[in-house]
């Protein structure tokens, strides 16, 4: 149901200083639960990348195994206390393994977990959690920096419980969640308007249309070429998205978005008619286990030799894949 993607890139400052990427992301699906987690290791903590890795893996497993327990607990303070305690237990084990101080493993933490129609959200420190509902992007949790730009709160902070934000509820029309570190937020979160960049909705749509591997590869390239140029910090992002009535897939894209996806020019003659054929092809392929050239040709009322051109283009763009015996199926199923 949910599609999960993630991406983390070492910042220019860390490349220059020879420090590893301290942003860690983890996605997990199991027991009917989908979880995305992101942790930004503290710059001042020498082993924070290990702490960030451990804490993201732990929360993914914890919420996957015990989602109902956490969700059903009505006392939010208890949830905070128990979660921080469990995180500190993990970090204490890691501290012994690495022979270091607990503060060396400090990181922020952002988590969203969803099961059936329920979701949970956890946030310690900076970074942003956003959601996508009815075609609109909104902020679920703003960065927690205190007053000054270079101050934030970490999993190991004495005030982790008091600064932690938690939320739970019914998903309703929510189609997606996105987590981003503060480095990524420099590109996607406006401090002036406290709002998110519209391109995140585009990334969510593309995640529903293309295979996870392609989106993660494209995200990585885009981050390396564009996003990390805006900051010295590491940049990371994790998102989860599902089809809803407001966006089911290719057929709900705008004409411009369809042209982008199909890599064709908007000014091509008869573009509307051509896009309508592409839409019919994609709709048919998405709704059936597989299709043949002949069946698709009948659907769009075009001779097979012309239909083949359309088919080859969606195949080239990665929207569909060919199977045995001349059958084609959606890339995202």
């Amino acid at each position: 149901m949910w599609k999960l993607v993630k991406c983390a890139v070492q910042g220019r400052g860390h490349v220059k200083a020879g420090t590893p990427c301290q942003d860690k992301v983890c996605t997990y699906t199991g027991n009917g639960v989908s979880v995305i987690a992101l942790a930004d290791g503290a710059g001042s903590a020498r082993l924070s990348h290990f702490g960030a890795q451990r804490v993201t893996q732990f929360v993914c497993e914890e919420f996957s195994d015990h989602f109902d327990d956490w969700f059903q607990e009505p006392d939010g303070v208890l949830v905070k206390k128990q979660l921080v305690q469990k995180i500190l237990e993990q970090l204490t084990d890691l501290r012994q393994e690495l022979n270091c101080e607990l503060r060396d493993l400090a990181s922020t933490l952002l988590v969203v977990a969803a099961k059936e129609d329920c979701f949970l959200l956890i946030h310690i420190g900076d970074g942003v959690i956003g959601y996508w509902r009815d075609g609109e992007l909104k902020v679920a949790s703003h960065p927690e920096n205190g007053e000054f730009a270079n101050i934030t709160f970490f999993t190991t902070s004495s005030n982790a419980i008091s600064t932690m934000k938690i939320a739970k509820g019914n998903l309703g029309n929510i189609a997606g969640f996105v987590l981003m570190s503060d480095g990524t937020a420099e590109s996607f979160y406006s401090h002036q308007t406290s709002s998110l960049a519209g391109v995140l909705a585009k990334i969510m749509k593309m995640t529903l249309i293309f295979p996870q591997e392609k989106i993660e590869k494209d995200l990585l390239e885009s981050f390396e070429q564009v996003v990390i140029q805006r900051t010295h910090d590491d940049c990371s992002l994790a998102l989860m998205v599902r089809p809803t009535d407001s966006f089911t897939g290719f057929e709900d894209l705008s004409q411009e978005e369809k042209c982008d996806v199909l890599e064709i020019n908007m000014l091509t003659p008869d573009i509307k008619k051509k896009l309508a054929r592409y839409t019919k092809i994609m709709r048919m392929i998405n709704r059936r286990p597989s299709c043949t050239l002949v069946s698709l040709s009948r659907e769009i009322h075009l001779k097979p030799k012309y239909t083949r051109k359309y088919l080859m283009n969606v195949l080239r763009c990665g929207l569909i894949q060919s199977c045995k015996n001349g059958h084609y199926k959606s890339s995202v199923k």
Binding site: S190, H191, A197, I215, V226, E263
Partner: peptide, 18 residues
Amino acid sequence: MSANDLIRTQDLVNNPVP
């Protein structure tokens, strides 16, 4: 869709420097 089309520079917000 090429990787270059996923996120373009003009898609990003312009935050003032701290």
